[in-house]
Design a binder for these strands. Structure first.
Lengths: 263, 263
DNA sequence: AAAAGGAAATGAAAGAAATCGAAAGTGCAT
DNA sequence: ATGCACTTTCGATTTCTTTCATTTCCTTTT
C-alpha cells in the first residue's frame, strides 16, 4: 500500500472507509503510517465514521460494519441444474461484444450471465427483471435499462408495459431469452402469458436472438408458444439435449451450441 | 492548466464546476491562482455551488460527488434525520385510502412510507425507485408498478422514460414527492435533472400532490426548480421549519402539516 | 484472581491555515 | 455622477492537526 499525500478531511475519511470495507479491519497505527498523519487525528476520523454508523470502533483500530451491507436480500431460489445454467450463461456471454446493447429476459439462465459481463466495456443491458438489474448495478461499466411495468412478486419481473416506451425500435443487438419448453412441433413455449408478451416484444426488436435452455427443457411444451424457430438465431444448451432434435433444428437453419459442463 | 481571464460570475462558476467535475477535487488556492482572483471570492463561488447541491464543500476546497457511488448511496441518505423522515412518512401514509393509486418518488422520505402502507387494502403504488419497489413487494395486498428507464446506480432510481408509457394519463390519485430544497422564491428544487423530469411527470398526472420535506430542506435552493407552490396541495414537514415561511405558504393556499417527533 | 506493564484513548492547549462578516473598494451601465 | 453588482481587505473566529500529560483499557505475569 503506498503513501497517500495530504488531503481534505472528507477525502481522507472516505479513503479510510473504503480501505476498511476492503480489508475488513484496520489499526490506527497502519492508517497513521499510510496517511503520514498523527494517531490522534486518525482516532478522530475513526470516531467520526463510527458515530455515523459506518464502522465499528475497536481498541487500536476499527472493523467494517457488517449489518450495514446495502444488499437487497433477494430470496434465494433453489436452482435446478445450476451448474448447467451457469455454463450455458458463460457461453452466451462470449457473444457479447464491447459497446453492444443486449436484452436479458427474466429467466434464471439469462440472469446467470451477469457475472460474465463484468469484463465487457461500455455495454448496455436491457432487462425486465429487477434482480438482474440490481446485480448489474454493481458493474460500473454497464448501463442498465429496466423495462417498466407491473411487478410480478414471485419472479421480480416486470410485465404489462411495452418495451417500445423505453426505447426506439430495433436497437437491441442481441436478445438472450430463456424458455420453459422447446419442441420441434410447438417451438418455444412458456407458462405465463404476461411474461410471454414481454419476451416477444424483445425478440421482435433484436437483431439476433439467442435462446438459453438447459437439456431438461427439450421436448417439453407449455401453455403458449412465444416464438418459432425461424425467429431464433442461436440456441445454447448443455449435453443431454436430444441429438436428433438438434440435427433437425440445424437443418432448419438454427445454430445449436452444446456446452460441456465440468462436474 | 492555463490562466483564465476575468469573466461573469456565472461563467466562472460553470468553469469551476466543470473543473471539479473533471478533477474530482480542487483547492481554493488552486482556483484562486487559476482565475487570478482572491480566495474570498472563490470561497463564495464554492459555497454557492455547494448550497445548490452540486459539489461538496470541504476545508480548503471542494469535492465533486454524485457520480461517485461512494458518497451518499440510498441507505446512507436514509440515515440522516431518520426519525423525522419516519414521522413525516407516517403522517403522509394517513392520507392513503384503500383502493387508491399513489406515486412514491425516489426520495428517502417517501420510501419510509412503505411500512405504513402495510395496513391498506388493494392499493396500487407507482414508483421509480427499485429499492422502494422491492420493499413493497413484501406487502401482499399492494400492487406495484415500477416506471421503466435507465438505472441511476447511485440512487437505484429509474430515469429517462416517460411515465405515460406505463400508465394511462391522470390516474394517480396522490403523488408523494421529496425535494432537495424548498424556498418561497424558487419553489421546490432538486439536484438531478433527470430525477426532476420524472418528478414533474408524476406531479402532472396526480390529482393531489404531497411534498415531504424535513426541516433542513427549508430555505435551500438547488440547481433547478421542479414545481411551484401552486402545483402543490399539501406539504408535510417537521417542527423546525421556519414559521414565517409556513405562514406565507398557507396564505398562498398550500396546506402545511407539521409533525412532532418523539425523541 | 489481582497487579503490573504497555499500548491506546482522552482532554486540554497551542499553532497554522481556512473561513466568515462587515466594511471598503472596483468597475460597469444608466 | 449615482446605483448596483461583484470583489477585495482586514480582523475576528473557526477548523484541523499536533503535542503532551493523564486516564483507561488490555494483556501478561504472579
Amino acid at each position: 500500500m503506498k503513501e497517500i499525500e495530504s488531503a481534505f478531511v472528507e477525502e481522507r475519511r472516505n479513503r479510510i472507509l473504503s480501505i476498511i470495507r476492503e480489508k475488513r479491519r484496520i489499526t490506527v497505527k497502519e492508517l497513521g503510517r499510510l496517511f503520514t498523519i498523527s494517531d490522534v487525528t486518525i482516532r478522530q476520523d475513526l470516531n467520526a465514521l463510527s458515530s455515523a454508523g459506518l464502522i465499528v470502533r475497536t481498541h487500536g483500530g476499527a472493523l467494517y460494519m457488517e449489518n450495514n451491507s446495502e444488499e437487497l436480500p433477494f430470496p434465494l431460489r433453489r436452482q435446478k441444474k445450476k451448474k448447467e445454467k451457469e455454463t450455458i450463461a458463460e457461453a452466451a456471454a462470449e457473444f457479447v461484444k464491447d459497446g453492444e446493447v443486449i436484452y436479458l429476459d427474466s429467466s434464471s439462465t439469462a440472469s446467470f450471465m451477469v457475472p460474465y459481463l463484468a469484463e465487457k466495456h461500455e455495454i448496455t443491458v436491457i432487462t425486465n427483471n429487477i434482480e438482474t438489474a440490481y446485480q448489474l448495478s454493481k458493474l460500473p461499466q454497464v448501463s442498465i435499462i429496466l423495462s417498466g411495468g407491473m411487478v410480478r412478486k414471485e419472479t421480480f419481473s416486470l410485465v404489462d408495459a411495452p418495451l417500445s416506451c423505453i426505447l426506439p425500435e430495433g436497437n437491441i443487438s442481441k436478445a438472450f431469452l430463456g424458455a420453459w419448453g422447446l419442441s420441434l412441433k410447438e417451438g418455444l413455449t412458456d407458462v405465463n402469458l404476461k411474461e410471454i408478451a414481454v419476451k416477444r416484444d424483445a425478440l421482435l426488436r433484436a437483431k439476433r436472438v439467442f435462446v438459453l435452455v438447459d437439456s431438461t427443457k427439450w421436448g417439453r411444451v407449455s401453455f403458449k408458444n412465444f416464438a418459432g424457430f425461424n425467429e431464433v438465431d442461436i440456441i445454447i444448451t448443455d449435453a443431454g439435449a436430444p441429438v436428433d432434435t438438434i440435427r433437425a433444428l440445424t437443418n432448419r437453419g438454427v445454430k445449436v451450441i452444446t456446452v460441456k459442463v465440468q462436474h
